[in-house]
Design a protein around this nucleic acid. Structure first.
Lengths: 295, 295
DNA sequence: GTGTCCGATACCCGTGGGGTATCACAGTGC
DNA sequence: GCACTGTGATACCCCACGGGTATCGGACAC
């Protein structure tokens, strides 16, 4: 009946991810038997079978899948609690409050510059630390307290569970090698871009693994830019990606690419004044007409 | 460095709410000294001062306030994890999946009836349990796992942290004693209703305590209905409240009342198929033109 | 059969979370 | 001044439980 401890949930998470008690124990830096027992005890306390044990490892029951989800939320919230509390104390410790803003490296560069500029002029502005995030990790960073706010892009990032404000809507462009025949086109369609035989779309790493497919495997924007310049791949990006194009790149608007909406998002329960000011600034400085930052 | 345990956070929550270690210990069913120690240990592990101890109790530091917020999230998530896991197992246990839908008792009665009717006709419908909630508790119920979904009303409920779909927008009405002079009016304004000298607005209990003021203190809809019928108070409600009006009540539309939007909301990370079907049904059955359910 | 690879069990040990009794200290009333 | 009260902190004890090692049991593979 008593509530679950985060320790138990961390253990269960490790098992649910490894699907192998021995490996999970190793990952947790402990021996296998106590982990076995801890999981059994968790099952007894819940009165629920979480794992089915077979040779070659374990599998999750339906209830186990549910707990897998929920446990993730709990341990993220717990680590976020520790981080935010420490930061609150540090911020109170003489120095200014710091805000950590997660942004996908390279994206929305222009927007970000304007935002930071406008915010620093605010009366109660905090120091803003930019936390570059890899592909689509902004959500995790908000959830586990590494970031206080994030610039996120629908439909690529999910905003579920966060508060957010819409900042900017833009179209998408195909980024091609400048010397490629299609680079001369005025517009392209999604289908055309995905079907270029000599330019397969690159495969981004998710959680350290690359999805299968023909394209080159990449982990960051620079690798992608280089591969495009070398004529090995093509990419689809929001308009604002023009900021980081090389001279060997060409940008062609996509007519049927879904519009990309940039939002500023933050944890739903946040009460920080500095954050509120940042959000206010963000919405204000994007409401204003843009001063034509075209290249 | 290790993550916080929910036990510690429960302890801290009790202290943060009572602002008195002895009382908090009593509430937790433990002695005072171990609680004192536990909090000190928490402070040491975080490296952060959470409480300032004065005679007559303790107060929260700024960091303490932050942890107060965050801890609430964590323990709610933990109890939700236990509840949802148990329910998932129970649902898998031969019987059908059950969905718990939190609704403010009496509100949106007609909408609810149509929703349940339409949903039960769905192929993969689960059994829906209606969980009547008091004033504005739907959010808590979603957060701590007592409910899988909730009907919520902006601007009264906050949707932050949940996924939601808009279902229905309606105006507001003033509910008056039928014999009151103003009951004959065709329309009223917010200002007029709040200023009726002999009918002060009732004061709803929040967390068991009533805000101060002149009106009668109430805890549920029935009390309110009775007091209105007795000519002691007046209330402002969405249109759909007409469903529970007594013959001794009169309803007068408010022209400047903000529109009330009914949403169906659910935890952001939910993956339940049954829930998805319920949401789909809800949006569909409110898209259709209403069959004029006027009294 | 034997070997291997799982998780489960048996058993031991030390930490630490819980208890009681008491202290330290600051107001408060007289 | 003093005794008294109400607060959190300290001292000390105990055992439950989380962690370890060694071993078992079962299911393939060969």
């Amino acid at each position: 009946m008593d509530t679950l401890e985060t320790r138990e949930l961390r253990y269960f998470l490790a098992v649910a991810e490894e699907l192998h008690i021995g490996r999970a124990a190793e990952r947790l830096g402990m021996a296998q038997p106590p982990l076995s027992r801890a999981i059994q005890q968790l099952e007894r306390r819940l009165g629920v079978l979480l794992l089915v044990r077979n040779r070659r490892g374990v599998a999750l029951t339906e209830a186990g899948e549910v707990l897998h989800q929920e446990a993730r939320v709990v341990v993220d919230a717990a680590t976020a609690a520790a981080r935010r509390t420490r930061r609150a104390a540090a911020g109170n410790d003489g120095s200014r409050t710091r805000l950590v803003l997660a942004v996908k490296a390279g994206d929305s560069h222009d927007l970000l510059r304007r935002l930071l500029g406008a915010y620093s002029a605010e009366p109660d502005a905090a120091e803003v630390e930019i936390l570059p995030s890899g592909t689509c990790e902004q959500g995790e960073m908000l959830r586990d307290g590494r970031a206080d706010a994030a610039l996120m892009h629908t439909p690529f990032n999910s905003l579920t569970g966060f508060d957010s404000e819409e900042l900017l809507t833009e179209g998408q462009i195909a980024v091609l090698p400048a010397r490629h025949p299609l680079a001369a086109r005025a517009t392209l369609t999604l289908a055309e871009v995905s079907d270029i035989p000599d330019l397969p779309l690159a495969r981004w790493a998710r959680d350290g693994v690359h999805p299968p497919g023909p394209g080159p495997a990449i982990t960051d924007q620079t690798q992608l830019a280089q591969l495009i310049a070398l004529g090995r791949t093509v990419a689809i990006h929001p308009d604002s990606a023009r900021a980081w194009l090389w001279t060997e790149h060409a940008a062609v608007p996509l007519i049927d690419g879904p519009p990309v909406v940039t939002h500023i998002a933050w944890p739903a329960h946040s009460r920080s004044l500095a954050l509120a000011a940042l959000v206010r600034t963000a919405t204000r400085c994007t409401d204003a007409p843009r001063p034509d930052p075209s290249a």
